[in-house]
């Protein structure tokens, strides 16, 4: 057969196969890939790239996860076999041993600082939204903190579920609604009924008479105190009036002088 230049030009109109760009970007460590992992929370879809874990969600299907990722993150995403050690690192993270790297590039600086601060809350403890706002230097941005946590692309692993309302209401949860939030907190050893009972009675801090220190009720140091030394406090003014100072570990607010 004879080949004409029009045949050659036709060859030039070939298209790369479906998924090609995603594969290349993922190989370069830019695009994201995902797999489903069995965890203590059940199956979790987790996405990662060259910078670290970029998203996680408990969903019913791959399609659902891909749609959610497209909406929330907006980068190309393909299913792939995970790196060998990722399953173990995810399990460690949920068990309270930190070792994961996260890719938060798509988020604003404010959102990133909120999520980094949430990560400092130890397993089995909770903090109010206002605590995060104060700690990151935006004490009045409590609502914005709530929004940033609700949009956390990596729930469970970045523990936004450990941030609760100070009135004891569990509050919204981007990782599967209030019920999921309760379930995860219980799994981590938080005694929710006790916490809510305290909140309903208006008690926000636990003071320890022997040390004259007051803490958030789930603080490790508060929980170590003997029952007979514990005194429940409504607010920081009351704490100050009774001669307590804020705990340096859980850092509740100090009363205005």
């Amino acid at each position: 057969m004879t080949v004409q230049t029009t045949d050659l030009k036709e060859l030039g109109r070939l298209k790369a196969p479906a998924g090609f760009s995603e594969r290349v970007l993922s190989q370069a460590g830019i695009g994201d890939t995902y797999a489903v992992f069995d965890t203590v929370l059940g199956p979790v879809h987790v996405a990662w790239n060259g910078h670290g874990v970029s998203a996680a969600m408990r969903v019913g299907s791959d399609e659902e996860f891909e749609e959610w990722f497209e909406r929330e993150v907006g980068r190309p995403l393909t299913a792939a076999a995970p790196p060998a050690d990722l399953a173990a690192r995810l399990a460690n993270e949920l068990g309270g041993r930190r070792g994961l790297r996260f890719d938060l590039r798509g988020l604003t600086e404010f959102e990133q600082s909120v999520l980094r601060k949430a990560r400092e809350i130890p397993r089995g403890q909770v903090r109010p939204y206002g605590w995060i706002a104060r700690e990151i230097g935006h004490p009045r941005a409590v609502r914005a903190v709530g929004t940033a946590l609700a949009n956390n692309p990596i729930p469970y692993f970045i523990p936004c579920h450990r941030v609760v309302r100070s009135d004891g209401v569990i509050g919204n949860y981007g990782g599967g609604g209030p019920e999921a939030k309760k379930q995860i907190l219980s799994l981590e050893g938080v005694r929710l009924s006790k916490l809510q009972e305290l909140a309903r009675s208006g008690y926000r801090y636990e003071g320890v008479r022997s040390t004259k220190i007051y803490c958030y009720p789930t603080c490790h140091h508060a929980r170590r105190a003997q029952e007979r030394n514990v005194v429940w406090l409504h607010d920081e003014a009351e704490a100050r009036a009774q001669g307590f100072r804020p705990c340096k570990v859980c850092r509740p607010p100090a009363a205005a002088a």
């Binding site: 060859l11 030039g12 070939l14 298209k15 090609f20 760009s21 290349v24 970007l25 370069a28 830019i30």
Partner: peptide, 21 residues
């Protein structure tokens, strides 16, 4: 990375055709 993402999308078909040829 942005430059590369755009590069991949812009040139993938062309490079695939070249590879095929």
């Amino acid at each position: 990375e942005r430059v590369f993402e755009r590069m991949v999308h812009e040139h993938q078909d062309r490079l695939y055709a070249l590879g095929y040829a």
